[in-house]
């Protein structure tokens, strides 16, 4: 069973890498396929960060055009295409967030983040290798305290540094770092289960 899962992930990543290679050769069908595969995950990620449909669409466009124009530095030895796409989308969205003057007070930020992740549709990911992880991630996040989730979200979706989070949440920097490490450790356990056995 475990071997089958790992084999599926390796196969998925190989397929993704092939798509990237074809996109870099200006294959618009490949561009369309990769977009269909990951945009339902990347779009909400960008939307969550920039809070604007237009900006989120622009972020996705930039990411895929980066591959198309061969500017992308992605190669297989740098990990999965999925991780690369997520990291690039997140970084671009955070970059936009910083360039947009979001006139939001700390209070607003806290109110915004008083809730947790929206519930994702279980097992509805178009990427076969990611199926089943929605529930696992949700479980992992449920295992964290509200504060730990908030710290993780402020850092990941709002681009706050640990010291900024400490200021916003009025708590010692050491506590923020400890709680963030705990949250990431929980995610890491899930990731290790995913790739782990390899």
């Amino acid at each position: 069973m475990l071997l089958a899962v790992v084999a599926q992930q390796i196969e998925q990543n190989q397929q993704d890498a092939d798509l990237v290679k074809r996109i870099q050769q200006q294959d618009k069908k490949a561009l369309s396929q990769l977009y269909d595969l990951y945009s339902p995950i990347l779009y909400p990620l960008a939307l969550r960060i920039v809070s604007s449909q237009e900006e989120a669409e622009d972020v996705l466009q930039e990411v895929f055009l980066q591959i198309w124009s061969k500017v992308s530095t992605y190669t297989l030895d740098r990990g999965s295409v999925y991780s690369w796409l997520v990291a690039t989308s997140r970084n671009k969205a955070i970059g936009r967030l910083r360039s947009i003057n979001y006139n939001r007070t700390v209070k607003e930020v806290e109110e915004t983040h008083s809730g947790s992740h929206e519930e994702a549709d279980s097992n509805s990911h178009p990427v076969l290798a990611l199926k089943g992880y929605t529930e696992t991630i949700r479980e992992a996040l449920r295992g964290l305290s509200k504060l730990e989730v908030k710290i993780l979200e402020l850092s990941y979706y709002k681009g706050y540094s640990q010291s900024e989070i400490a200021r916003v949440l009025k708590m010692p920097l050491g506590t923020v770092k400890m709680k963030m490490r705990k949250g990431i450790q929980r995610l890491r356990q899930v990731a290790q289960r995913r790739v782990g056995a390899a």
Partner: peptide, 25 residues
Amino acid sequence: QNSLALLPLALKQQAPPSGAKERLI
């Protein structure tokens, strides 16, 4: 990077606005 890449999986999936793919291509 692999661990943090799992975070967006917990978000509710949402397709980009219609016509976004066509605009990209």
